[in-house]
Design a protein around this nucleic acid. Sequence first.
DNA 1: TTTTAAGTTCCATTATTTGGAACTCGGTTT
DNA 2: AAACCGAGTTCCAAATAATGGAACTTAAAA
Lengths: 266, 266
Amino acid sequence: MSGSGDGTVGKALGVLDQVAGFGRPVRFSELLEQSDLPKATLYRLLQTLTNQGMVAYDPERGVYSPGMRLVRLAHAAWAQSSLAEVARPYLDRLSREAGETVHLAQLDGGHVLYVDKRNAADPVEMYSQSGKVGPAYCTGVGKAMLAHLPADDLTRVLKQQSFHRFTPATLPDEAALRAELAEIREHGYGFDREEHEPGIICVAVPILSGRGRCLGALSVTGTTTRTNLAELERLVPRIKAAAQAIAEEAQHWRFPDRPVEAEEER
Amino acid sequence: MSGSGDGTVGKALGVLDQVAGFGRPVRFSELLEQSDLPKATLYRLLQTLTNQGMVAYDPERGVYSPGMRLVRLAHAAWAQSSLAEVARPYLDRLSREAGETVHLAQLDGGHVLYVDKRNAADPVEMYSQSGKVGPAYCTGVGKAMLAHLPADDLTRVLKQQSFHRFTPATLPDEAALRAELAEIREHGYGFDREEHEPGIICVAVPILSGRGRCLGALSVTGTTTRTNLAELERLVPRIKAAAQAIAEEAQHWRFPDRPVEAEEER
DNA sequence: TTTTAAGTTCCATTATTTGGAACTCGGTTT
DNA sequence: AAACCGAGTTCCAAATAATGGAACTTAAAA
């Protein structure tokens, strides 16, 4: 499990993940039976998290849920650490040009985290759309990012992949994935050939910093009924251009120098 | 400071706040001089947070920023713990009926956290944005929520208010605020009379659970050029109805029973 | 080359976390 | 009524992890 091994803080964050993972308010006892922490320990961790605002406790029902402090913190994360802010105009343009759904993703642990999205039609809801996670080993953006990870990071991350076979096309194991990654590295882009969802294909390009570090990935997604791989491939130069522009700008978007906070408040 | 006193976890989360608070990628030394933690301690906490994905470290520039794991967690928080999911249709309707900006907020620590928002047809630039925090003592939603807090919680929260005077109308101190809160409690709704931003007024209503616990608040906001308090007040019955409906539904929206996770992944 | 600042590691001391067990509190059964 | 039960909460001595002063390593500046 991810959150074990960094002492108390790691354990606490593990509990936080657990609470968030339930997808609904959860009882102490439910957490307890799913956890290997002893009762008292789990209890105290939850107390700490609660009065830190990282989880919310509903005394009327006796249930825990992820706390609002997370939303505040994530706002900061989204606004600055993610590429979202920088990438926004490029996503807009790319989705207009391509007429298809565009994703911006980054790695979070071993998983793909969708940071922003342009739906062909409807507009974005910040925390309902972005913030979602998906598997890395069977999505276009996931593979594009894995392909450009340093060898030792990659090995670590591959350990976390489940290789669940969503579709017949899903890559079945680490060996197959490594082969595909080599190919992606060579071409500078990769496909999702209905590996995650039947009928859904995409082409993805990594966003690489000047020194070759992988910052994220861009993809254009379509359905097999409406398009095909060859057609998506034709978009690669545009996507690459966008990726490079984003990387470039992210590089220069250092320190806006004034800490922004126009308004006093705390 | 908020995050001191819950042992190591509290300290770690304090550091996290600090990193997020900078609003830009930040150097170790910057954090160090602003913190009262010793160098080694701060260093280790950052390491822990980093390999937990709560902060991201950019080795190329040697800076820390809030991590993507927060976005993932916040997604969960927003989707379940907040009232946002339940309230969405009511916000939609309210904003359509009122033709003005509508806010949904909850308390986060001593501050107002804007959880969702509907812009007026003709949006006015203002401070709020979902995910953002604002002061509690001088906003409509803030005061509505404070008014319905248990006495001891209120006392604790009032300690955290800065009473910075944003405008001439800002309530200057705890006494004035307490008086106003009593009034809000009596009427069941309250105003923001340009107390936070000049020209911006609003009427706000608390969202109260069956047992009277305050879950959040709703507000309708306008500008002095376009509307006035009396006109906003006329909306109170509708807002109250929405608030009550939301509270009701939040109550019944227990356990969707199937943990949702349609897709295997972890 | 020397100096200085930033970041990183070490390790004995110290303080915190740990977790088994005992306790409390509603509610249910005998 | 008394006994029982399960969920949640508290206790405290033992075990463990956090602490922080100081020394070390780079990398850049003088």
